[in-house]
Design a protein around this nucleic acid. Sequence first.
DNA 1: TAGTAATTAGGACAATTGACCTAATCGGTA
DNA 2: TACCGATTAGGTCAATTGTCCTAATTACTA
Lengths: 190, 190
Amino acid sequence: MSAPTRETIIATADRLFYERGFEATSFANIAEKVGISRGNFYYHFKTKDEILEAVILRRLAFTQDMLAQWQAEGKTPVDRIRLFIHILVRNQTKIMQHGCPVGTLCSELSKQQHPALAHATRLFTLFRLWLSGQFTELGLTERADSLAMHLLMRSQGVATLAQSFQDEAFVHEEVRLMDNWLNDLIDVKG
Amino acid sequence: MSAPTRETIIATADRLFYERGFEATSFANIAEKVGISRGNFYYHFKTKDEILEAVILRRLAFTQDMLAQWQAEGKTPVDRIRLFIHILVRNQTKIMQHGCPVGTLCSELSKQQHPALAHATRLFTLFRLWLSGQFTELGLTERADSLAMHLLMRSQGVATLAQSFQDEAFVHEEVRLMDNWLNDLIDVKG
DNA sequence: TAGTAATTAGGACAATTGACCTAATCGGTA
DNA sequence: TACCGATTAGGTCAATTGTCCTAATTACTA
C-alpha cells in the first residue's frame, strides 16, 4: 500500500469534510483536489464510510498528539485548561468560517443517523477526559467531569454563534468570561 | 394559490429540513411526505432556495409568535428569561435527536456558503433582541446584549453536546447552572 | 532481464438529483 | 352550459452521485 497517496487522500478528505461537510463532499471533489483519478481513489477506499472512518481515526490521532503537547507545555492544570480555552482565539478565523471541526461533524452525522456518530463523539470524549483530568488534579475530583462538560459546552456554543454572526469581538468576550470562570473556580477552592 | 397545499408543503419541508438537514432533503422526499407529485411541487416552488426561503420565513413567524407568548406569559423579566432557558428541557427529546433547529441550520448554510445564511441568522437575532430587552428591563442596560449572546451561546453548546452524547442528565445539570447564573445576576444587581 | 504484485487511469453502471415541460383536471364565473 | 385560470400529475432532461470493472502502468523481486 502506498502510504503517501493514501495519507494525502485522508488529509484532503479531512479538510474538505471540515470546510464543506461530509455529505456535501463527493469522491470526485476529493480526487480532484488530490490530483488522482476516481478509479485510483476507489482502489484505496471502497466506500464513502470507509474514508470517513479513516478521517475520524486521523483526527483522533491528531487530537491525542495535541493533548499530549498541551500536557507538556502547560506547567499547571490551570495553564493547560487555558490552552484549551484559547483554541477559540488561535483558530478563530477557521471557526468563524466552518465552525468547530468536532461539533459540526457530530451534528451532521447525528442528523443522518450515521453509524459513525459514536466514533466521531470519541473526539469529544478525548477532550472531556483530558479536561476532567486537569480538574481532578486541581482537587475538584467530584465535579471534574461536570466541569469538563461545561467547558466543552461553552466552546461549542461560542463556535456555533461565531459561525453564524461572524462576530470577532463576541469570541474574545466569551473567552475572557471563560478565563474569569476558571479564576473564580480556583479562588473558591483555595 | 391554494393556501392549504402550499402551507402543507412548507410545514413538511420545515420538519424534514430540521430532521435530516436542508441538503439531505430532496424535492421527492418532501413531495412523498405531503402526498403530491413532484410536478405539483414544482408548481408551488420553482427552486430549492425558494422553499428554503419560505421555511425560514415560517420559522421567523413562529418564533415571533412564541416570543410574544412568552412576553405575555412571564410576569417578570426573570420569569421570561427562564421560559427561554427551559426550552432545552421542554424540547429535550427533539434536541437530542436533531439538535437546535436554528443552530444546525445556520451551521449547514454556513458550510455551504449559502446566501440564505443571513436570513437564517435572523432567527438568532430575534432571540437575541428579545433576551436583550429582558436584561434591559432588569436594569442591566449596558451589558444587556452581551448577556443575551451569552445565554444564546450556552443553549447552543448544550444542544450540540446533548445531540452528540445523548446525555439527559447533562442537559438538566446545565439548565440548573443557567438558572443559578440568572439568580446570581440579579443578586449582584439588587 | 523476466515476471509478479501494487498502483493508477479511465470508463461504465444504475440511481438520484434539481429543474423543466406539457397535458389533464379542477373550480368558479359568465 | 361553456369557458378560463388555477392546480395537479406524470414524464423528461442533463448532471452528479457512489460504486464497480478492466486495462494499462509502475515498482519491486527472482
